[in-house]
Design a protein around this nucleic acid. Structure first.
Length: 115
DNA sequence: CTAGTGACCCAAC
DNA sequence: GGTTGGGCCACTA
């Protein structure tokens, strides 16, 4: 039977987030769009906050549209450390170069997009 | 039920 | 570059 209609938005969000490859990041708005929640980036933030500790969802790969970490306090440091261990670089302002690191689920066309 | 808040985003000034 | 205001919807008091 079809359970897609019964699935909560969290599950869809977690599914999309789990598809983010290592060393890449995605924005809240991007996740929302891919999960079918167009314009509802805030719900993605809620879903991330509701994640249980030790979850296998790579929540650290979700940042805001500016390429910055939106978490307050020590959680931000944790997220940054996790991302840096994956090879994601932060500039002096604590921002990620989204043009370089943003996850692109579709490869439109281009055999070499390496700068 | 209403009102305020939030791991957000975007247009406008 | 920065600030303001509106929009979105779930959660809490």
């Amino acid at each position: 039977m079809l359970k897609i209609a019964v699935e909560g938005s969290h599950d869809r969000i977690y599914k999309v987030v789990s598809r983010i490859p290592r060393g890449r990041v995605a924005t809240y708005g991007q996740i929302a769009r891919l999960a079918g929640l167009h314009g509802q980036a805030r719900l993605v933030g809620y879903a991330m906050h509701a994640l249980p500790n030790g979850s296998r969802v790579p929540w650290q790969r979700v940042v805001n549209a500016r390429g910055e970490i939106s978490l307050p306090g020590s959680s931000a440091t944790r997220q940054r450390s996790l991302l840096e261990s994956e090879g994601v670089r932060f500039d002096a302002r604590g921002r990620i170069d989204l043009d370089r690191v943003l996850w692109q689920p579709r490869r439109p066309r281009s055999e070499s997009d390496d700068e």
